[in-house]
Design a protein around this nucleic acid. Sequence first.
DNA 1: TGAAATGTTGGGGCG
DNA 2: ACGCCCCAACATTTC
Length: 470
Amino acid sequence: MTAVIHWFRRDLRLHDNSALNAALESGLPVVPVFIFDPAIYRGERASASRTAFLLAGLRHLQSELARRGSGLVIRHGEPVTVLRALMEQSAATALYFNADYSPYARSRDRRVAEALGVERVRSEHDLLMHPPGMVMTGEGKPLTVFTPFKRRWLELPKVLPRTAIGRFHDLGGVAQGVLPEARELGPVSLLALPAAGEAAAMARLERFAQTSLGEYKERRDLVFAQPWLEQAESTSALSPYLRLGMLSIRQAYEMAMAIGQQAEAGAQVRASVETWISELVWREFYNHILYHFPHVLTRSFRSEYDALEWRHAPEEFAAWAAGMTGYPIVDAAMRQLVQTGWMHNRARMIVASFLTKDLLLDWRLGELHFMRHLIDGDPAANNGGWQWTAGTGTDAQPYFRIFNPVSQSRKCDPDGRYIRHFVPELRDVPEQYLHAPWEMPIPPRGYPRPMIDHALARERTLAAFQAVRS
DNA sequence: TGAAATGTTGGGGCG
DNA sequence: ACGCCCCAACATTTC
C-alpha cells in the first residue's frame, strides 16, 4: 500500500489548500505531517507567542483530521532528515507542500527536493493570489512601486477557493508523535490568544465582512476599535490567520468581492472593499519584494541609505520596547504588542516612526523586536513595513514624512480609550491632556516625562537624512 | 498611509 | 461708509 505525504507548514487548514488538494486528488491516501524545525522556533527571530498560536492551530488541525479518520504526524528536527525517514516508513511515493518564498524556506525546500529526488516532490502555489514572477513589468522586471504593482495585480485573473475530496491515511503503521506543550518552546506571557484554526479564521472573516468591512475606509485608523478590546473592529485582525494559513488569501478576496458586489452595496461600501483589498495587495507586494530582493532582510533596499548613521542608545531602545517613552500612544501600542502579540496597523506605523525618526534608531532593531512578539510576524510584511516607515525601502514614504505622535494620537484614539486601556497610569487623566500629559499643571505621577522633544527630534532626523542624500 | 511653514482670502471688529 | 487690521480657514509649498 503506497501513500503520499502532505507537509503542512504555513497552510494549517483543510479547505482551499492547493498542495493538499493536489495530494488528495492523486487518489492515494494522504499522510499529513507537521515538523518542528528548530531553525525556526528556536531561532533568534522566533516568538514564543507565535509558537503558542501555532500549537493551538495544530490542535485544531488534529481535531479536523480526526473527524476525517486521520491523525497528524508530528516530528521534531531538521526537515531533510525527518522527511527522508518518513517517506520510507509510510511507503510514500510523493511529497506535497505549498511553496514558501522567504530565503530560508526556499533554500530548505531546495535541499529537501535534492534529498528526496525532485521527481517525488510537488510544490504548489498557495500563499499568495499571484506568486512571485507573475506580477512583472512589460519588460519582465519586478515592480518596485506599489501603485503600478497593484494595477497589474488587479488585472490578473483571480483564482477561487476550492476544496478537494479525497482520503487521508489511517496512519496505522506510522507513529504520530505528540504536540509539545507551549512552555517547552519558550516562555509565553500573553494574556490571551485569539481562537486558532480555520473555523475561527472563517468566523472572524465573516464577522468582519458583515459588520465592519463596509466602513473600513472611514474607520480603519481608529486604533481602539479592535477585537482585543472587545470593540467593534475597524480592521479585520485576520493577519495571524493569514500568517499561518488558517485562512487562504483566496477565501479573503472572495468574501470581500462578494460584499462589494451585493446589490445594496453603495459607493461607501465599494470604496471600503477596494481599500481593504489594497491591504491584501500590500501583503503580496512585500512578499514579491523579498523574493526578488532578498538583501532587504539585512540591508536597505536602496543602498544609499546604508550610509545612514543610526544612533547607538540601548537604554532608549529599551524604553521604547517597554512602552516607557512618555508618549502615551506609543507606550499603549508597545505594551499591547507584548501583552497580546498583536498591534493595530496604524499603531505599528506610529511606533515605527517614533523609533526610526524620533529616536533615530536602526529599523532592524524594531523589526527584530516585532518578530519576537507578533503572532502574525511575517518576514516579508514586517520587513516591508519597517523599511517603508524608515524611508529606506522600495516604495518608502519620503524621508521627511515624520509622524507627530500627539496629532496621530488625537486622530486615531480621539477619546483615549486605547491609551487608558494599555497605560493604566493615565486612566484618570482628563481627555484634553491624555495625548500630551506633560502639559498638565501637575503631570501624573508614575508615568515618565517624554524621553525626547518631538520638534527637536524631527529636525535632527531631517538633517541626518539630508546628509545621506547630498 | 504627514506635518510645519508660508501664502491667500474673506469676514468682522473697530476707529 | 470706508479702510485697516486681525485672524481663522483654507491652500500651497517645503522639509
